[in-house]
Every structure is written in structure tokens, then in C-alpha cells.
């Protein structure tokens, strides 16, 4: 994932960072409109909470000439520079703007209409988070662990001859989750550490390999290296050294 910086991209760094997560550039315009409404209708207190801090940030941390003085060349913080965007309470600004403006209107009907209009703007121009979860399977357990991985780890735990079995996962996400689900498992990166990593052979020291069922080349290599398939799930094989 590329992290853009104002020193490299100028003002467009914001558009580029938003686009990384499917957020359209007009979010900035929508937020700016709500900020102006909040600043104009909200009074001094609302401006002190939202407008003046943003101005200060634009002059300092968000400024391409000033922020290098703050961060120097420290790559650890430059890599995470995008996180300073969290300082701006972007979801509170529309709320402050709408409520401030509505409080200036004399009657209840215009207030309701304004609120509905604002919600419509947010709904039509936004990218609803809930939509992104459509089609996602509900978690199978209270750990929110992948059900297939749980089954695989349980097979490994039942078959392991040591307290700390070394396991190589073809899927990196499985490896990541396995460490959290069963901390006894030690992870080998043999299958994905480098491109063109060597196939398993008789010199391999891993106790278990977990591979996809369609990885026929890996399966062949494992079977000819003395590993035996001890279990399978709908998508994976579990091989153990014998």
C-alpha cells in the first residue's frame, strides 16, 4: 500500500490517499461545505472546536513545507503519515454544521427538511460501509476466526508430537490468524517468504504443511518428501511429516 506525502504529491496527496480506500475526492468538498455551514451558523464555540484547529493543522502538520521539519527523515513516522488525518473529526463536522444551521431556523418543518436534506447528501454522495459487508459470511464462532482455520489448527493440535509444532501455511492470512488462535503453533514462512521459494523436500524441517487443494505441484512435492496428508477441509490439505 503506497503512503502518499504532501512533499511528493503536493495538495493531491489527500485525493490519492482517499482513493486508496475507494473514497471519492469530493468527500473533501462535502466536508468543506459542512465546515463552512458550521463556522457561519455555529458561533464562536463551534469555530473554536472545528475551524481554528483545522487552520492550525493546515499551517503546520498538513503543510508540505513545515511537516518535514517535524518528522525529519524518520521513515517510521513518514510511513504512517496518513494517520494524522485522524486528527480532523471528519464525521462530526457535518453533524455540527447541520445542527448549528437548524438551530437558526425558526420553525420545526425547515429544521426537519434541512436534516433530511443533509442525510440525503451523505447517503447519495457517500460510500456506505454497510454495503461493503453485503455477501460477507457471518462469523462462525465467537472468536471470529475462520471456521476452516479452526478445524485445521485442531487437526494439527491433535496430531502434533511436540508442544510447539512448526507449521507452514500456503495462505499468509491463515498463518496470521493461526498465531492468534493457537499460540503454541510456530509459523514457517517457507511457502511464501520469497517469490520462487523452493518446494518442500526431504530436507524440510516443518512438522506440518497446510496447502490449497488446487496446489497440485506442492502436493506432489510434499508426498515425495515424506509428508502424508492427515486431514483435509473443503479447500485445504493438512500434511504431516512422517
Amino acid at each position: 500500500m503506497t503512503n502518499y506525502l504532501p512533499t511528493e504529491s503536493g495538495l493531491s496527496f489527500l485525493l490519492k490517499t482517499l482513493s486508496q480506500y475507494q473514497a471519492p475526492g469530493y468527500y473533501i468538498i462535502v466536508a468543506a461545505v459542512f465546515l463552512v455551514v458550521a463556522a457561519v451558523s455555529g458561533g464562536r464555540r463551534v469555530r473554536t472546536a472545528f475551524l481554528y484547529p483545522l487552520i492550525l493543522l493546515i499551517l503546520t502538520v498538513f503543510n508540505p513545507y513545515v511537516f518535514p521539519l517535524l518528522l525529519g527523515n524518520n521513515s517510521r513516522f513518514i510511513e504512517n503519515y496518513y494517520s494524522v488525518l485522524w486528527i480532523v473529526p471528519i464525521t462530526m463536522i457535518p453533524a455540527a454544521g447541520v445542527v448549528s444551521a437548524a438551530s437558526r431556523l425558526p420553525h420545526i418543518v425547515p429544521k426537519i427538511l434541512l436534516t433530511v436534506f443533509a442525510l440525503a447528501v451523505l447517503a447519495l454522495l457517500g460510500t456506505p460501509r454497510l454495503r461493503s459487508y453485503a455477501g460477507t459470511e457471518m462469523p462462525a464462532n465467537m472468536m471470529k476466526a475462520d471456521a476452516e482455520l479452526v478445524t485445521i489448527c485442531d487437526y494439527i493440535a491433535a496430531d502434533a508430537e511436540t508442544d510447539a509444532p512448526v507449521v507452514a501455511f500456503e495462505r499468509a492470512d491463515f498463518a496470521e490468524e493461526a498465531m492468534a488462535y493457537n499460540p503454541a503453533i510456530l509459523i514457517s514462512t517457507a511457502l511464501y517468504a520469497d517469490e520462487g521459494a523452493p518446494s518442500p523436500d526431504t530436507e524440510s524441517t516443518e512438522d506440518f504443511f497446510v496447502i490449497r487443494k488446487e496446489s497440485s505441484e506442492l502436493e506432489k512435492a510434499l508426498r515425495s518428501s515424506g509428508y502424508k496428508a492427515i486431514a483435509h477441509t473443503p479447500d485445504s490439505y493438512v500434511f504431516a511429516r512422517r
Binding site: A23, M92, G126, R129
Partner: peptide, 22 residues
């Protein structure tokens, strides 16, 4: 209360980790 509800709505309607609710 209205402002908190609108903040909640904005958090649900803007999908990006750059919003805190993301």
C-alpha cells in the same frame, strides 16, 4: 442527540479508514 446521531450516520455512510468510524 441529533448531532451524535448524524455523526453516527456519517460514519456509516463514508467508507474509508480515514474516518475514525472506518
Amino acid at each position: 442527540s441529533f448531532a451524535a446521531i448524524l455523526t453516527y450516520a456519517a460514519g456509516l455512510l463514508f467508507r474509508t479508514p480515514y474516518t475514525p468510524q472506518g
